[in-house]
Nucleic acid binder design. Structure first.
Lengths: 133, 133
DNA sequence: GGCCAATTGAAAAGACTTTTCATTTGGAGC
DNA sequence: GCTCCAAATGAAAAGTCTTTTCAATTGGCC
């Protein structure tokens, strides 16, 4: 995944690796401030600005996904499933990915009915994970 | 719908009616600032604070839905379909509701596979409406 | 090893949202 | 209708979060 950065012509910096590592180690969704805190344990000079920029970069590259919870809409989690969606535990903030299938029919039906050309979709499930139930 | 406020024990104020009217007239999703602008044409003394509070109140009551677009996650649109979802035009910001069916199977399957107790879900489709294609 | 564009981060600026609190007001009860 | 009070309001202040700026640093091609 670190290679993905190089592939797309981005430099492989200690800061980017730290942010990637933080998101990979945590199974939860994290705010930029939390990523900064944890990231500094890996690379102490990490700055806030870089965290914001890196999270958005990783999102554009598809390595990271935004999570829109009740707590706010600026949290990020690693995207473990390419083109997938996620399921969020409302108690412990754990995030589990699941593949994006079974939605195509609904999307096509809605597109036909409304005349829209659907280009993207956002699906997020929330609930309680087995441990928190 | 205005009656819904009374039903839930909330007062029917000119400010709330103005916000409701703005959201009903526009078929688009609007930011709080836009709601304020338009709302002041209906009730000129409307204040920013009240717009924020009213939008959240209407959302809790289910009259209004939040739209999470690329432009940001704080936009609101009227919820025309109870328990439905929405489809957003990326060009003109028009919002169309569609019923929440066809998703249950996917949710149940995911719940079974992951052990999560799914409590809520967020689904948003984005694309181009017939007029903007 | 040198070079240069990409990257970084501290500080400043900016944008957005919430809190505070004195004033106003809807509507229940008479 | 009138009174009354808790709910609602809004201007200003405070707070939070995010982006921009710009000089310094650095990854990686040569």
């Amino acid at each position: 995944m670190a290679k993905g950065l190089r592939t797309h012509g981005y430099k492989l910096t200690a800061q980017r690796l730290a942010v990637l590592q933080v998101l990979r180690e945590g199974n939860e969704h994290l705010t930029p401030a939390e990523v900064l805190d944890r990231g500094r344990k890996i690379y102490s000079r990490l700055g806030m600005t870089t965290v914001y920029r890196t999270l958005e970069l990783l999102r554009k590259l598809g390595f990271v996904r935004r999570v829109h919870g009740a707590e706010g809409c600026r949290a990020y989690a690693e995207a473990r499933e390419r083109d997938g969606h996620h399921l969020v535990c409302q108690a412990c903030r754990r995030v589990v990915d699941f593949p994006c299938s079974g939605l195509n029919e609904l999307i096509e039906h809605t597109a036909r009915r409304t005349g829209f050309a659907v280009e993207s979709h956002l699906l997020e499930l929330a609930g309680l994970c087995p441990a928190c139930q």
